[in-house]
Design a protein around this nucleic acid. Structure first.
Ligand SMILES: [Mn+2]
Ligand SMILES: [Mn+2]
Ligand SMILES: [Zn+2]
Ligand SMILES: [Zn+2]
Lengths: 143, 143
DNA sequence: CTGATAACTGAAAATGAATATCAAAAGCAT
DNA sequence: ATGCTTTTGATATTCATTTTCAGTTATCAG
């Protein structure tokens, strides 16, 4: 799994003529070791606390590369910070976002995805990506 | 239609003990005269070009009031600017966003909305709002 | 291995949207 | 009109992200 992701990035780097650097290796390692929905700052701090000095700019730049390489997805919730999550090949999910405790529940719904395709087709629209977020209170925060 | 919106804001203002000001009247007029999905900056410039001096801060503040009053909805696309659209009572729609020409197509799908409710219910989640955006190329930009 | 070249890094500065500050102005009740 | 409270807006501030650019490093031809 992790090796597969590393290979994926390697292939991407090769195809784009990117160089292999210490920083990119470290950032990839740490990104792969995180759970879902990490903000750039969280990653930066995690790297910092490992006594590995890497600059902010490099973390930002590298996460964009991961996104381009298809192994990360950018998520913009309503907290003013860009977050990244892992892309699992052949999977897609959307989010229930709790405004009480900021927790995120993931869900998949094939019917919704199909309806989206139909709507797009009806408008001659070519889908590249989509996002769907449901905001509200999770079971815990309701009570 | 426009009178109805003005009354709506008036009622809201009264219920909140807000004062009636020249600035709020102007911003409401201009907001109601726009089409969908205006950014704060666009509104600000429109006001400025009408030779009516109103500060940035006031435009930001007032649009939040409109949102609270239920006559505007905040939209966050991927261009780093908050936009606002008109709320039509009893209606809801989502967006197809063209990454080629930045145009936006609106659509409604009752089945998707119902599926969202079901998913939320399944997780004991109480929905407050949701957003769904499909990104890609519109019919024009495809060709 | 060596040197040339182009890519990469990161500290620091810049950007840009949005918010906070606060003194002056304006609305409203009496 | 008076007095009190809200509102405004120029300005400063915040904060995430991007840009700059000089120094560093990876890669590759010789
Ligand atoms: Mn997720
Ligand atoms: Mn719309
Ligand atoms: Zn919660
Ligand atoms: Zn288009």
């Amino acid at each position: 799994m992790i090796l597969e992701k590393k290979k994926m990035f390697n292939d991407f780097a090769t195809s784009k003529g990117l160089r292999s650097t210490r920083q990119r290796d470290i950032i990839l390692d740490i990104f792969l070791s995180t759970h879902q929905h990490v903000s750039v700052e969280e990653l930066y701090l995690k790297i910092k606390s490992s006594n590995l000095g890497i600059g902010h700019a490099t973390v930002y730049r590298t996460l964009k590369l991961f996104t381009e390489a298809g192994l990360a997805r950018e998520i913009l919730l309503h907290d003013g910070q860009t977050r990244y999550e892992h892309v699992v090949k052949g999977e897609h999910h959307d989010h229930l976002v709790c405004t009480g405790c900021n927790s995120i529940i993931e869900f998949e719904d094939a019917t919704i995805e199909k309806l989206q395709d139909e709507i797009a087709a009806r408008h001659g629209f070519l889908i590249k990506s989509h996002k769907m977020e449901i905001y509200g209170l999770c079971a815990n925060c309701r009570s």
